[in-house]
Amino acid sequence: MRGFVLAALVGLSLSQPGLAADPSDSPPSLDGQIQDLKQEVLKLNRELFALEEELLYPASTQVSVFLSLDVGGTFALDSVQLKIDDKIVTNYLYTERELEAFRRGGVQRLYMGNLKAGRHEVVALFVGQGPAGRDYRRGANLALDKGVGPAYLELKITDKTSKQQPEFVIKEWE
């Protein structure tokens, strides 16, 4: 009895699943079909995004605002409010997962919209915790001269190491 029982147990306790290659994750034909489907939906997704962009955000009026964050201990971001020409266009509250993605080099497309050619005022308000955990609210603004092509703006939060303070800027990409 003991032999049988223990053999089963020993086999179980030491062959933790997933540690070695497993050639039979799912039937090959089904797995292949699922892969084909994923590829097709990816392709479809790209085409639909392109269509959406053409319809809703034509290049002549398109404006995109991105957010990147490269701060150490000087600032913990909670939320961002974006205003264009004194109108709030987006408010965004961040999750820990998103902040981690920022810390690793991720860039978020915070807003996409349309603006006529001409001069516009872009204002971003950043809310979070600054040095020593104090509540922190800072703004950054940019006078945008929108031409006939798409405009790309990047809101950047970086460490101003000399002053141990975060720095908030808006950069326009060519």
């Binding site: 991105f66 990147s68 997962r97 998103e98 981690e100 993605a101 920022f102 690793r104 080099g105 991720g106 860039v107 978020q108 497309r109 790309y152 990047e154 990409w173």
Partner: peptide, 13 residues
Amino acid sequence: DLAYGEVLFEFYQ
């Protein structure tokens, strides 16, 4: 490249 940053933002999540 902003586009690459966007990819990373999704990937790290």
